[in-house]
Computed example of a mutant assay.
Amino acid sequence: MNKLKIAIQKSGRLFEDSIKLLKDCGIFYNDGRDQLKVECETFPMEIYFLRNSDIPQYVEDGVVDIAIVGENLLIEKQKDIETVQKLGFSKCRVSLAVPKNVDTDDISFFQNRKIATSYPNTLRNFLQENGIQAEIHLISGSVEIAPNMGLADGICDIVSSGSTLFKNGLRETRTILKSEAVIAKNKNLSSEKEHLLEKFLFRVKAVLKAKNTKYILMNVPNDKIAQVSDILPVLKSPTVIPLADEGWSSIHSVIEEKRFWEVIDELKQAGAQDILIIPIDKMVI
């Protein structure tokens, strides 16, 4: 039987979130120590634990079928592979940064200067698009120390919170691109592998939908049911259950978590009481 081969980062910021996603999708494996390949017990899948920078090449070559990888890496490596699903975690950005004593944010600062980076292709494309001539100094790690060592006038690097820049006396001036974890695939999958990928993506989408959605319950006077229902952004229509107290019902629905605080006052003013928000484990539409 064919198995879907997936690559994930063997260590680093993407590893734990990738493993959690697989487990949330009901995909489990024997956690052997220091294994580079494991077979899953509950889904026809093999997991390859690879060095992050090598993953795009393995996907393009067909050594693995799919991968969980950062968009920023795909853009930098410029491989002929396809992004099929954004995952919403490991969000970051690739940005330019300069020493704190530089008093301008204008990218013209970098004209004819040196920039240290681990993302030469991404940086080169940005500079060309903006008509900036600069010397790119490639560094594989610890890019932030380059200005302090006199190797560069500024840097282009991945940024999450910005704390590393601050600790090294730098400040962010321009975001080149925003990134998050994605699922990418080889463009030449067999029909059987495509079918397995569809089944996997079905699970992934159910998990992602549940993370952003909550189950909402509230007690509402019967004469306010229509008004409350109009406020709720629901899939089809809310569930209405009569209560023991005459003239009252319980309304059950779902709501995007980010929308809850937008509508809570409207719900209360419309007569809703005893409002409960409950996490959803999976959501199949």
Rank of each mutant, 00 (worst) to 15 (best):
N2A: 14
K3A: 15
G12R: 06
I19K: 11
L21P: 08
Y29G: 01
R33E: 14
R33K: 15
Q35F: 11
L36P: 02
V38N: 06
E39G: 09
E41R: 15
T42V: 07
F43W: 08
E46Y: 09
F49E: 04
P56C: 10
Q57L: 14
V59S: 06
E60Q: 08
I68H: 02
G88S: 05
C92Q: 06
A97R: 02
T104Q: 04
D105L: 05
D105N: 14
D106K: 13
F110I: 00
K114C: 07
A116M: 09
S118Y: 05
Y119N: 14
N130E: 10
V143M: 04
M149V: 12
I155G: 01
V159E: 03
V159Y: 00
S160I: 15
S160T: 12
S161K: 04
T175I: 15
T175R: 13
I176R: 00
L177Q: 06
E180S: 13
K185M: 11
L189Q: 10
L196N: 08
L197Y: 02
L197P: 00
R203P: 04
K205A: 06
A210T: 07
I216Y: 03
N219Y: 08
N219A: 07
D223N: 11
K224L: 01
L235M: 12
T239I: 14
L243D: 06
E257S: 10
V263T: 00
L267R: 00
K268R: 15
A272R: 06
I275R: 05
I275M: 06
V284I: 14
